[in-house]
Simulated assay, not measured.
Amino acid sequence: MQSSVSPLQPCLHPIYARLLCAALCQHGFSEAQVMEGTGLDWAHLHSDNRRLSFAQVQRLVRRAVQLTECPWLGLETGCATQVYAHGPVGYAAVACADLRGVLQVVERFSVLRLSSLRLTGHQVGERYCLSADEDFDLGDVREYILSTLAGTFLRLLEMVCGPLPSGAVQFDFPFAEPAWSARYRELLGGAVTFSADCYRVSLPLAWLERPSLSADASAARLALRDCEHLLLGAEQGGDWTSRVQLRLLACEERYPTLEQLAEEFHLSERTLIRRLRDEGTTYQQLLDEVRQELACWLLLNTPLSVERVAERLGYQDSSNFSRTFRRWLGMTPNAWRSGSAEVLRP
């Protein structure tokens, strides 16, 4: 577990949050009910393809489980998610020639969709295991995230291999067996254990040579090219929006001006403005978003006073921070802290 990774850093493609929102709407909840206490905006969530931070995902998942009173909601969501929702990674996986190639795609490129988990494949006896290492503590949404991952992986295997023998795929979860464990065994095929040292899924080693039912060599080449391009971009710091976001998240109380930031990136101020504009944003917009998300995190997860939160965000006047926060979320910091703490109570 890498404690240096911040839960405020972008980590999850927004399509998964949208799928969760769609499921909640199917349960009969309104957009306003779904968003209450999360600090998220429905229209923005469904129109912006920038990744969500773990903190944002955590608030949305807490709200979803509270509304549905369904603690195995992640499992149901994962089992209902179509493979193609995973974008280029999903396309590349299902187009591979055999299951070995599919698993290699999952291991190498899953960080493009969820970067808070690192998947590693290895052989154990006569089985192939895929384990997940958490970049930071997933806390009270660990079950949701890992059960979603399990359901998603099972759907992928079924698309590539066809119907699977009951119990042939083993799922191990690193949390205590819940009272609803029968639901896991029903949806995942029976071979499920709890209180493991990490999340792990395993299958017979002999399966790796199975030809994929959806193999398409031409489509695989195109999708793998797209995945490699995206991975290279991520390793180089991502797009300019992501680079600016990460730089601002690393700040403590004092934020650089646009001119100072451009100098750090060895760009002219005009060039940085243009590159952000080409990605549909501005420096001021990103600064506001980083400050807003950090404010929400500090108010919900720390005992810091509003005055100290304002200082942490670079505001010399706490009243100015309160006015800005009201513009962001339509209420004062104290009202949001108390209201969200109640709405999102685990």
Rank of each mutant, 00 (worst) to 15 (best):
V160E: 15
G121Y: 04
R62T: 11
R63G: 05
V102F: 15
A132T: 08
A295L: 02
A215N: 04
A219R: 13
V94P: 05
H266M: 07
L286K: 12
S268E: 15
G280M: 11
A335Y: 05
F194N: 07
E186D: 01
L146I: 07
A92T: 07
D135I: 00
D172V: 05
R312Y: 00
D48Y: 11
P256H: 13
E177K: 12
L75P: 03
L313M: 07
A80Q: 13
Q316P: 00
G78Q: 12
C129Q: 06
A92M: 07
V94E: 10
M35K: 07
L73W: 04
P163K: 15
H229N: 10
Q284N: 06
A310V: 03
I273F: 13
A196E: 00
V5P: 01
A22Y: 01
S242K: 08
R50K: 09
E263N: 08
V169S: 13
L203K: 00
G233L: 00
S338W: 14
P88A: 15
C161L: 15
A234D: 03
H46V: 01
R118V: 09
W336V: 03
G78W: 15
A206Q: 05
F194W: 01
A95Y: 08
R63F: 01
R183I: 09
Q123M: 02
A168C: 13
S4G: 11
L24Y: 05
V160N: 10
P163L: 06
A179L: 04
R210C: 04
P346R: 08
A219W: 04
A17K: 03
L249I: 09
S322I: 00
F153V: 07
G78N: 07
R243L: 03
L60I: 10
Q33Y: 04
D137T: 03
A341E: 09
G28I: 04
R51M: 08
D135T: 00
A150K: 06
E69D: 14
A176N: 07
L157K: 11
A341V: 03
L99I: 08
R270V: 08
Q58P: 02
H27E: 12
F175R: 10
C21N: 09
R142A: 13
Q66K: 12
R254T: 15
L52F: 01
A182C: 04
W328F: 07
E289W: 12
F153T: 14
E76H: 07
T271Q: 15
R185E: 13
E293H: 11
S319C: 00
Q170P: 00
E259I: 12
C227T: 12
L299Q: 01
W207N: 07
R18Y: 02
V105C: 14
W328Q: 10
Q285K: 08
S147Q: 11
F265S: 14
V309K: 02
G237Q: 09
V89S: 00
L114W: 07
F175A: 10
R243Y: 06
A182D: 02
R18N: 03
D317V: 03
W42I: 03
